[in-house]
Amino acid sequence: MEELLQHLINGLSLGSIYALIALGYTMVYGILQMINFAHSEVYMMGAFFAYYTAKYLNLSSSPGFGSLAIVLVVTMVLCSLLGLAIEKFAYRPLRKAPKLNVLITAIGVSLFLQYFAQLVFGADPKVFPTLIEEQTLFTIAGAPIKSFDVTILVVSLVSMGVLHFLVYHTKLGKAMRAVSHNASVASILGINVSRVIAYTFIIGSSLAGIGAILVGIKYQKIEPMMGTMIGLKAFVAAVLGGIGSIAGAVTGGLILGISEILVVVYGSSQYRDALAFLILIFILLVKPAGMFGKNRIEKV
């Protein structure tokens, strides 16, 4: 019982990280109907932004919520700028081009960032600074609850809450939903579509930055290729939940995180990555639009 609880906590924190990154995929897809493959690299760059911010400001010598907050804010700003730049220089010129062109560009941007990071930061792994001191906060049924896991959960929940508020209770959110529903009608009604898209990239990239910091805190190893696998998993989580759906991305992330941990525990780590993609195939076969996705029929 104690172990199962421990595994569930591990799965929950892994899953909430997947969810944060999956949100970036799902939001861009919802608005632009494109898969932003460069998103996983925004996440990777976020880890390095946080690393250098903490190093430059010498924050690891004074771990605590103040330091965490500073790193979070700086990283979110830098990630947003990166996301904006990608949107402006890579995707905006192609807005009227066929979907496939944008997709290939996204892969190109992703590869560019991976190798750019290797060149600038070096290819060897770096040790992420200690931003939160590790301690056992309390114990539930014999399973110790650690400060990192609580931090990860709290930060993810708050981010998701803010996102939900933004999308469903603000004017910007209304505009986003309108653009997602039909971009040309929205623009006829006076919504600045380009600006809504820019905001979408800002939000998605900030979430990726948050995810990167959480991974850094928990696992402490960052390197330029760290985005590839986690990006793919987050993408699976987004599809699993129904791409374009915010609730779907969160649910998908949590399901994937918990089931991966359980596979490692009760099966073998060899099957872990296979499981993620098996789930993807299964969902696509049974419910092609995902758990929360609406089946939209293409009208001619």
Partner: peptide, 20 residues
Amino acid sequence: DIQYQPKDIDFNAQLAEIKA
């Protein structure tokens, strides 16, 4: 006798199994 995969950063699940 348990294993991890290349590039893994999360070893918690296996370590919990070992601990037991």
